[in-house]
């Protein structure tokens, strides 16, 4: 009798495990398929990309990845029959995205780390209000400042410049950098720093000799999340750039996925474009909770 019951329970357990695995597989397919399809398309010729029924087995080609950098616009137009904004090759857009991301993150990190350290250690008067104020700026829609910023940039000559985007992205990412780095500084015991200060060490020296080395991993994680944020920004890049400074997302958005365009070429650009985020998310997995929930839910630091 007991045996029978055990058997039944065992069978039910197996059934449940099978169901959960089945559901998991369906979910994985749902989440992965569009990304798989993008990467697959980037490895197909134009004819293969448009074939019906779609090809699941084909001889992959890296032709698209070469063409987006080496072919000039006239050649691409000859192939696709459409005007495509690849006049100087995709490297211009990647270069713009890279410069803007790198510079703004460098500035945001330096200023953000300093601010986070002072919030964490010295708790200047009104620290709570300030932290809270910095956070609320992040939660408000950026588009509400789009119109004034546009005119502001036009009149200052910052429109269509790298430096203009860099300043703006620095601003957008400072709150995150401060918030995240403060949480890492808060975790480091301050005894050593205090001892050094009592011994008469220079506070600035204490900061970069003692405090900073202890949060290097956190600094790396913060920079990783900043890269994802800036690399993906679209609205202000759309608003404030023209051909010379256009970043990758604005360029690919311009194609609007229309038929007739060579999907393989756009897919190749998109694949290269999403690659950093794909890699970063697996590297940063350990910090996901801190980096993404931003203090809004319980349990997230």
């Amino acid at each position: 009798m007991a045996n029978l019951q055990n058997n039944r329970r065992g069978r039910r357990k197996i059934l449940r495990t099978v169901l959960i695995y089945f559901a998991t597989i369906i979910a994985v397919i749902f989440f992965i398929f569009p990304i798989y399809w993008l990467i697959a398309t980037s490895l197909k010729t134009r004819a293969q990309a448009f074939s019906t029924p779609p090809l699941f087995v084909w001889e992959p080609t890296v032709r698209n990845f070469i063409d987006i950098f080496l072919k000039r616009q006239t050649e691409i137009e000859a192939i696709t029959g459409q005007e495509l904004e690849l006049a100087t090759g995709a490297e211009t857009f990647f270069y713009n995205s890279f410069i803007v991301t790198f510079s703004s993150i460098a500035i945001a990190t330096v200023i953000g780390v300093l601010a986070a350290y002072s919030f964490s250690r010295y708790q200047p008067h009104g620290t709570n209000t300030l932290m809270f104020f910095i956070l609320s700026t992040r939660m408000l829609p950026a588009i509400v400042v789009a119109i004034p910023i546009y005119f502001f940039y036009r009149s200052l000559g910052l429109y269509n410049t790298h430096i203009g985007l860099v300043l703006l992205y620095t601003m957008f990412n400072l709150p995150f950098a401060v918030w995240m780095m403060k949480s890492f500084f808060d975790e480091v015991p301050r005894d050593i720093e205090q001892a050094a200060l009592v011994d008469g060490s220079n506070p600035i020296k204490v900061f970069y000799k003692i405090a900073l080395p202890q949060v290097l991993v956190g600094l790396g994680a913060t920079i990783g999340f900043l890269i994802i944020n800036v690399w993906n920004e679209f609205l202000f890049a759309l608003l404030l750039t023209e051909r010379a400074t256009r970043t990758v997302p604005v360029m690919i958005a311009g194609t609007r996925g229309e038929v007739g365009i060579n999907w393989g070429l756009i897919a190749a650009i998109e694949t290269l474009y999403i690659l950093p985020a794909l890699v970063l998310i697996f590297v940063l997995q350990r910090f996901l909770l801190r980096g993404m929930t931003f203090g809004t839910v319980r349990g997230a630091k």
Binding site: I228, Y273, I274
Partner: peptide, 9 residues
């Protein structure tokens, strides 16, 4: 993954 890759892509 879908959340971290570019919304435009």
């Amino acid at each position: 993954l879908p959340y971290v890759i570019s919304s435009v892509a």
